[in-house]
């Protein structure tokens, strides 16, 4: 596992914030994912050693929380909310539009690695439903038209 010096320093600062090193496992995994785009298998042992926790516990954490990717995702990771308010306001059409445009199913990734699509649960944006999160950003008040525009824009 290779990290730039400044990233290692950042991790040191994160760990130092907490009364116990193991508390830093989520923020450190977020850093790992930010740096690599996902959490590579080698990272588990590295994080376990860094935080003095058993690799088994890092494995558990990685498999439990939905935001961690254990394999690379698309450059634009499309996370469409499918909970009730979004469902009532047209989520299924949004998902269908994306699937049609990109030729993938939920859970899939385009062959060129540009896009991946997952359905997620409530993102706390029910007032602007339907919506999706793309990487870190919210795209709210979607329409099928708007989704097509976004996909075209990102395809370029």
């Amino acid at each position: 596992m290779n990290f730039a010096a400044n990233v290692l320093e950042e991790i040191d600062r994160i760990v130092a914030r907490y009364p116990r090193a193991t508390s830093a496992v989520l923020p450190v995994l977020h850093v790992v994912q930010r740096e690599h785009g996902f959490v590579p298998p080698e990272a588990k042992a590295w994080v376990a050693a860094r935080l003095d926790m058993p690799p088994a516990k890092v494995e558990e954490v990685l498999s439990f929380y939905t935001m961690f990717h254990r394999a690379p995702v698309g450059r634009k990771h499309l996370q469409v909310c499918r909970s009730l308010s979004c469902n009532l306001r047209g989520e299924e059409e949004i998902t269908a539009t994306i699937c049609r445009k990109l030729g993938i199913d939920p859970g899939g990734k385009t062959a060129d690695g540009k896009f991946s699509l997952v359905q997620v649960e409530c993102l706390g944006s029910c007032g602007t439903a339907p919506m999706m999160q793309v990487n870190d950003d919210y795209h709210e008040g979607l329409t099928p038209r708007r989704v097509e525009e976004l996909l075209e824009e990102w395809s370029r």
Partner: peptide, 15 residues
Amino acid sequence: AITERGVRAELNVVE
């Protein structure tokens, strides 16, 4: 370890 969540939780040895 018990990995994954919900009904798909499973017992495992770590990689």
